[in-house]
Design a protein around this nucleic acid. Structure first.
Lengths: 119, 119
DNA sequence: TTAAATAGTATCCTTTTTGATACTATACAA
DNA sequence: TTGTATAGTATCAAAAAGGATACTATTTAA
C-alpha cells in the first residue's frame, strides 16, 4: 500500500464515523432499517436528545442518512440509511472485525503480563 | 451485514485511528519504514513535539508501532510499524478510498447547489 | 383545563483534546 | 565556556466535545 500521506483522505472517512455515538446509530439503522427519532433514542442507550439530534444532523449533512418529516401532531420523523450511506458498510464491518480481534489481542497481552508477574 | 450494535467493536478500531495525527503518522511509517523521532517531526507538518510524543505512545500502547531506543548521545529513537500494526493497512486503504470518493461526492453536491441557485 | 406524546432547542457546565511555549539531560565540538 | 543536536517533559491556555437540565410547539384525549 502506498497512500501519499500528504494526499491522505483517511480523515475524511474518519470524520464521519467519529463522535461517541455515530457507529452505534449507523449500526442500528443498518440493522433495523428506518427508525423514528424516539425509537433510536430508546435503542441507543444513554444518549441524550441533544446528542442524538446532533449526530443525526451531521450524518445527514454528509448524505449518509436521510430524514423524513411527517406533518403530524405529535411529530413523526423517520431516519434511514441512504444508498450512498450503505457504501460505509464494508468499512464498518472491517473495523468491527479488526476491533473484535484486537480485543482478543489485548486480552492475551494482559494475561501474559499477569503470568510473568506471578512467576 | 448484521453487527449487533450492542456488541459493536467498531469503536475499538476507531479509537486507535483517531487523534488529529494518527493516520498521517501511520502512513508515513508504512510508506517509509523505520523513522526517527525527528524525521517524523519533519514529515508530519505542523505537529508539535508534545503531540507527536503523545500519539506515538498511544500507538505503541496498542502494539501498532514499536519504539527502539539507542543508548547514545544525542539520543536516537526509532519508530516502526509492527507486524500486528500492518493488519490495519487494509482498513486505512479502504478508508482512504472511501474518503477520496466522498470528496468527489461533496464536490458534486456543491456544484449542483450552485447551479440551482444561479438558475 | 390539564395532561400526554413527539421531536426537537436553549443554556450552562464539565471533560477531553489540542496547542504554544519554555525547559531538561547529555556528550561532543569549537 | 558556550553552543549544538536529539528526544523528550512540564506548564499553562484555548478550543472542541460531551452532558444535564429545562424549555417549546401542537394536537388530541381525559
Amino acid at each position: 500500500m502506498t497512500i501519499e500521506p500528504e494526499l491522505c483522505k483517511v480523515e475524511d472517512a474518519l470524520g464521519i464515523l467519529v463522535g461517541k455515538w455515530k457507529p452505534i446509530i449507523l449500526l442500528h439503522l443498518m440493522k433495523n432499517g428506518t427508525q423514528r427519532f424516539s425509537e433510536l433514542k430508546r435503542s441507543v442507550l444513554g444518549i441524550t436528545q441533544k446528542m442524538l439530534t446532533k449526530q443525526l444532523r451531521e450524518l445527514e449533512d454528509e448524505d449518509i442518512i436521510e430524514r423524513v418529516v411527517y406533518p403530524q401532531v405529535p411529530p413523526k420523523v423517520e431516519y434511514s440509511i441512504t444508498e450512498y450511506g450503505k457504501s460505509l458498510e464494508p468499512i464498518l464491518a472491517a473495523m468491527h472485525e479488526w476491533g473484535t480481534n484486537h480485543t482478543i489481542h489485548k486480552q492475551q497481552k494482559l494475561m501474559k503480563k499477569t503470568t510473568e508477574q506471578s512467576s
